[in-house]
């Protein structure tokens, strides 16, 4: 039995320490991902907190046939979506370009951050699929599970996302730059 499975079993028995150790390595990656999906840094932190709380509360429903990170990201995406809906209901139009948390979190560099371009040209789901594939190294099957989509949908949209970002990266964007893929 791997260390992760032992920690999961201990967490299922109510050990907060085991759960904390279990998710410690995932927290930064989750927050980084949530920063790309939430409208503010504070929302991303709230979504991370909710994600970890829900994961601990419902850890009994975790199925070891999936990677633990797959399960965590699935919860994170749901929480981010829920938070966005709540903000929409409370604040109306959330489209505040100055509120992009990525703009504050990306270190200054000579080149533009490709994920900011991705956010501009890809739909939310395709962006998430690209992130999970290229940052979290998830398989197509895992990505499909996180996004609750079919494997074929995931493959097709990963390919579309790649093409769109290659265009952005090579600076040869024609009309493709304004087209949202997915």
């Amino acid at each position: 039995m791997s260390d992760e499975l032992k920690l999961i079993d201990a967490a299922k028995g109510g050990s907060v320490d085991a759960f904390t150790e279990l998710v410690h390595g995932y927290r930064e990656g989750l927050l980084r991902f949530l920063l790309t999906r939430c409208s503010s840094h504070a929302d991303a932190e709230d979504a991370l907190q909710d994600t970890l709380i829900n994961a601990y509360r419902y850890i009994g429903s975790y199925n070891p046939q999936w990677r633990f990170s797959t399960w965590l990201y699935r919860i994170a995406i749901r929480n981010a979506g829920k938070l966005r809906k709540e903000n929409l209901a409370e604040l109306g139009d959330p489209a505040d370009p100055g509120a992009d948390p990525l703009a504050h979190c990306i270190a200054d560099s000579e080149r533009d951050n490709l994920w900011r371009s991705a956010k501009r040209v890809l739909s939310d789901e395709v962006f998430a699929a690209m992130w999970l594939r290229y940052v979290e190294d998830m398989s197509v099957r895992d990505i499909a599970s996180v996004l609750e989509r079919s494997s074929s949908w995931t493959k097709v949209n990963l390919l579309r996302g790649r093409r769109a970002l290659e265009v952005e990266m090579n600076g040869t964007a024609g009309n493709a730059g304004s087209e949202a893929y997915g």
């Binding site: 759960f19 990525l102 992130w131």
Partner: peptide, 25 residues
């Protein structure tokens, strides 16, 4: 490039957030 650019996104867990999460758990 995607991996490198993702790494430049600052996602440090602040002590305040950490204590919030611990208290919630």
């Amino acid at each position: 490039r995607l991996r490198e650019d993702a790494a430049t996104i600052d996602a440090e867990i602040s002590a305040q957030l950490d204590s919030r999460i611990q208290a919630s758990l």
